[in-house]
Structure formats: structure tokens, C-alpha cells
């Protein structure tokens, strides 16, 4: 039976199921215990699984990830919560130099199966450092896998799949979508679920392909709905996995539609969209009717909350890009 729950609650259910299914799964982070996390994603888990399974850590991100590496070497499967996107950087060294390379430098003999959960993106009127989109830094790092969920159903399965994976996974959660509701099959077996590292066509279309992930998927869907009123039939793909990107699915779509627009909140310069544009150009050159266009955050620090709506890609900016693509 499907239940209608928020994305945040879906993550909570997914984490609960992971804790139930594998005694080696431990959750660690700042305020994840009694408080249930500042976004309540781990709400109630410490009460039910104990302080050894849901660990309130000291306030130090390098420490969270570094000790998680040690726990993973010991055979645990840590799920680390970074409280906000802008606070992952103290842990950057551990993630990039240690987590990403353990398997490689040990010639496959040491695995560090861990998940690093990061609420990311803006749109919640937050003070600085609370609205950032650092996914490109991690997607650029070999040895890490990077995913982002965009709806409750995916949140529920993807978090479990990430935890089950022996790869280290950086798991980006669209914080402004935490409260959006959707149907989730809580009893469905994970084995039959849509794969973790696969993009998904959310809205089939024929005229252009919109590529988005995380919080921008909703914007892309809204833009496609608006475009339909103008007689344009846009395909919307939720990338879901940022490393590796599911290129075959993207190429297949763009070869059909001949146009692609990538949407993300992160600054455009050397972002995910830049790589997608390059790869699409390399692989779909003769199918393209227009250059791949990007709708992204500007190349500036995330601005003050009162102007963030002008920074974030929105329906109008996406439609403007679609217009430009058709006008080529």
C-alpha cells in the first residue's frame, strides 16, 4: 500500500529500514540523536535503535567523516549527516583524500561503504552557508559516487540503495523539497526498485530535453507543463545520479529531441551542466538543433536570502532558455 508522505519522512523511513535490516548500519552526525537532526530526518531513530546506532557526534565534520572511515574499516556502514551544505568543507579533506581513495590505494582490499548525506540548495530564506550546491566538487572526485533524490519515492529507495552499496556515496538531499509530499511504497522490496545509478524520464516529450536533479526537478517539470500550453512537448529527465552520470539515457533522449537544456542551482562555471554540455556535444553532435544551454546559479557566492529568488533558476528562466534553444 502506498502512503503519501513528505520527502523528509521518506528518508526517515528509509534510514529506519536500513537500521533494521543491517546491524552494522550506524547513523552519525551533529544533533541526529535526541533532536532527530535539524531537519528531523533522523527523528525517533535514536530512541528506537539506541545511542550506539544513532550517534550524536562532537561538532567537527572532519571528525565525523574520519571516524566513519575507521568504523567502515572495522566493518560498519556509517551514514553520516552533514548538517548543511556549507559545512561539509571541514570534512573535504577526509572525503576527497581518504574516503574516495581507500579502495583504490588498497587495491580493492579495504572498502569504506559509507553514505554522506548533505541537505543542499537554497530557496528556504536561510542565512549564508545554508543554501549551497557543492555537488560538483564531489562529482569531480574519482572514487566517490554522487546522487540526488528529487521526490519522496526516490528518497525512500535511494537512501537504502546508497547504504547497501559498497561504494562511498555522497547523497544530496534537496532541502527545500523536504516538505513536499508524494506516494511511497513502504513495503516494496528494494530488490525490485529502480537502480540507484540511473536517470529517469519523468515526463516524456519530443521537442527538447530538460535535464535537472534534486531541487530543480520540480522547476523543470513545472516549466514543461507551462511549455505544453504553448504547444511545446518537453521531455524532463531527473538525472538522479551525478557520478557516474547516466549518459546513455541522456544521449538517447537528446538524439530524439535534438535540444537539451540543463538546469542546476550551482554556479555554471565548470559545473555539472558544463560537463553535460560537453559530453552531449561529443556524442550527439549531428542530432543537435542548437547548442546545449544551461540555466544555473550565477558565478557569485550564494547571495543574501532576500534576493535568492533572482539567483535561483526558476520557471521563467528555464522557459527563456527553451525559447533560445528553439530560436537558434
Amino acid at each position: 500500500m502506498a502512503e503519501t508522505i513528505t520527502l523528509g519522512k521518506a528518508l526517515n523511513h528509509g534510514l529506519r529500514r536500513a537500521l533494521e535490516n543491517d546491524p552494522k548500519v550506524v547513523i552519525m552526525g551533529e544533533d541526529v540523536g535526541k533532536l532527530g537532526g535539524v531537519f528531523r530526518i533522523t527523528d525517533g531513530l535514536q530512541k528506537d535503535f539506541g545511542e550506539d546506532r544513532v550517534i550524536d557526534t562532537p561538532l567537527a565534520e572532519a571528525g565525523i567523516i574520519g571516524t566513519a572511515v575507521g568504523l567502515a574499516i572495522r566493518g560498519y556502514r556509517p551514514v553520516c549527516e552533514i548538517q548543511f551544505d556549507g559545512f561539509v568543507f571541514p570534512a573535504y579533506n577526509q572525503i576527497v583524500a581518504q574516503v574516495a581513495k581507500m579502495f583504490y590505494r588498497s587495491k580493492g582490499k579495504v572498502r569504506v561503504p559509507m553514505v554522506i548525506r548533505i541537505p543542499f540548495g537554497g530557496g528556504i530564506g536561510a542565512v549564508e552557508h545554508h543554501s549551497e550546491s557543492p555537488e560538483a566538487y564531489f562529482s569531480h572526485t574519482p572514487g566517490l559516487k554522487v546522487v540526488s533524490c528529487a521526490n519522496p519515492a526516490d528518497a525512500y529507495t535511494m537512501i537504502q540503495q546508497a547504504i547497501n552499496s559498497d561504494d562511498p556515496v555522497v547523497f544530496f538531499e534537496p532541502k527545500r523539497r523536504y516538505w513536499e509530499k508524494g506516494e511511497v511504497e513502504l513495503e516494496a522490496p528494494l530488490s525490485g526498485a529502480y537502480p540507484l545509478h540511473a536517470a529517469r524520464v519523468l515526463r516524456p516529450g519530443t521537442d527538447a530535453t530538460l535535464l535537472a536533479y534534486g531541487p530543480m526537478v520540480r522547476v523543470a517539470l513545472d516549466a514543461a507543463a507551462a511549455a505544453a500550453e504553448d504547444g511545446r512537448n518537453l521531455e524532463v529527465i531527473d538525472l538522479r545520479t551525478l557520478s557516474p552520470v547516466d549518459y546513455p539515457a541522456i544521449f538517447e533522449s537528446v538524439r530524439r529531441t535534438g535540444r537539451a537544456v540543463v538546469v542546476h542551482e550551482a554556479p555554471g562555471n565548470l559545473g555539472i551542466g558544463a560537463e553535460l554540455a560537453a559530453r552531449i556535444t561529443e556524442e550527439c553532435f549531428y542530432s543537435l538543433e542548437a547548442p546545449v544551454l544551461r540555466v544555473t546559479g550565477y558565478d557569485i557566492p550564494y547571495p543574501a536570502a532576500r534576493v535568492e529568488e533572482d539567483f535561483l533558476p526558476d520557471l521563467d528562466r528555464v522557459l527563456d532558455a527553451v525559447d533560445r534553444s528553439f530560436g537558434w
Binding site: 574520519g66 571516524t67 572511515v69 575507521g70 568504523l71 567502515a72 574499516i73 560498519y76 556509517p78 579533506n93
Partner: peptide
């Protein structure tokens, strides 16, 4: 210095075990 954190996490695991 990175390994001191790995050691500490591993040691936490020893306790948990």
C-alpha cells in the same frame, strides 16, 4: 594526521563490538 581519526573510529567500533 588523517589516520588518527581513522584509528579513533576503528576504536569506537571495537567498543561497539
Amino acid at each position: 594526521g588523517s589516520q588518527t581519526l581513522h584509528a579513533t573510529g576503528y576504536a569506537m567500533g571495537v567498543t561497539m563490538d
